[in-house]
Design a protein around this nucleic acid. Structure first.
Lengths: 212, 212
DNA sequence: GTATGTTTGAAACGTATGTTTTGAACGATG
DNA sequence: CATCGTTCAAAACATACGTTTCAAACATAC
């Protein structure tokens, strides 16, 4: 990343700043000055700030979803049974291991996702769902086979709940780290959290469906 | 709310707009013009925009936490057993029933909470934790008594996960409603979600703790 | 009724933002 | 070498923002 092209320098910097401060709170000047490029470069290469936001997400999610697709192929080919543990394990290993050279990258990923999801008017959320909905549905299908007793529409919501617990927790990890350090004298890492998260999610997804 | 004082008109309007569009994306001019008050009124009555944000949260959370405290008193007095179902039930009834005259109010509550939590630098998050941490700890103590087999530090995270699943889902309910309508031809309400959410959270909180 | 403290109204201030413009520098192509 | 499309740099542009100012309106107490 030392002397990458202007476009990549912008994306690298924007990614970090967006995750740190949010979209609206990050000015193009902050990005370009930190990236060492001219202010006009953003509008020249991306057209607008909003397009830059989308570009940041695409650069993140496209390889991630491709890797997830590959892992699911692999899983189907190897004939491993669909269980919540397996499916969620694939996801967590993918997130935590996708950039081993840069452990902070996973944190950025979640903070960005949290930003996108909490973005109120939600145009980014819809864009992501439309762009990457296929992988999401595939994941959901596998999960359905893992817990056939849970009705599909019930499972849809449980997957959403899982997404929420994950993104929400890991996107606000900085504050939570402090709290847990104060209240429990306990230092935690992303890997610790996911290790604790998995049983929670499995328990929730497998929970008995209450009679209507 | 027809002819309330300036302060309340500002709070009412800011609350809705903050929930709809976020803090940074909502200008004081948007608030004051929609509220029918002068632009300077915000700085006059609240000092700054940031103080207005805090005031909006205080008006929301102070009565809510007081009500929650009262419900917990009531629960302790009546000698009802501490179970995850009971504790979460109290919370959900409190949220959904706190403003029966205005059902949208619960949605606003969650969207605001989501905004506060996903606020990157998290100064609001810390403020809320510091301001209302006591009630939170009390809730956590009850939950601990409900699931004594879960170690406290493990439970801390499970409560966070639960918070995440709840706030995340209900704060982005608009988009999710559309998706669920398209994919499942299913209309949902806040009450539907909480009804589905409770078993999920209970399952997660009661999940077996994996051996280290 | 006058005086005092509080609230409102309209306008302006200073600043930061996203975007556009204009030309120069560069690199490949003919 | 000239030319053309691409990239970069500096400056300016227009606008929107939070905040401040100051006088008018208002209410309240003496």
């Amino acid at each position: 990343m030392a002397q990458a092209g202007t476009v990549d320098r912008i994306l690298d910097t924007a990614e970090v700043l967006f995750a740190q401060k949010g979209f609206a709170e990050t000015s193009l000047r902050a990005i370009t000055s930190k990236a060492g490029v001219n202010l006009a470069a953003v509008n020249y290469h991306f057209g607008s700030k909003e397009s830059l936001v989308q570009a940041v997400f695409e650069r993140f999610l496209t390889p991630f979803c491709a890797a997830l697709d590959a892992k699911l192929d692999e899983m189907e080919a190897s004939g491993v049974a669909d269980t919540p543990e397996n499916i969620l394990g694939i996801m967590s290993r993918l997130v935590l291991g996708s950039h081993p050279e840069d452990p902070q990258r996973a944190a950025i990923f979640f903070r960005l996702s949290g930003q996108a999801y909490s973005q109120p008017q939600g145009h980014l959320r819809e864009y992501l769902h439309q762009q990457y909905g296929a992988v999401f549905r595939r994941l959901q299908d596998h999960m359905q086979r893992a817990v056939p007793d849970v009705p599909p529409r019930e499972l849809f919501w449980r997957v959403q709940f899982s997404l929420g617990a994950t993104i929400f927790t890991l996107s606000g990890l900085e504050s939570l780290k402090d709290i847990s350090r104060n209240d429990f004298n306990m230092d935690v890492t992303e890997a610790d959290i996911t290790q604790r998260l998995l049983p929670f999610l499995v328990g929730g997804i497998k929970a008995p469906v209450p009679a209507v």
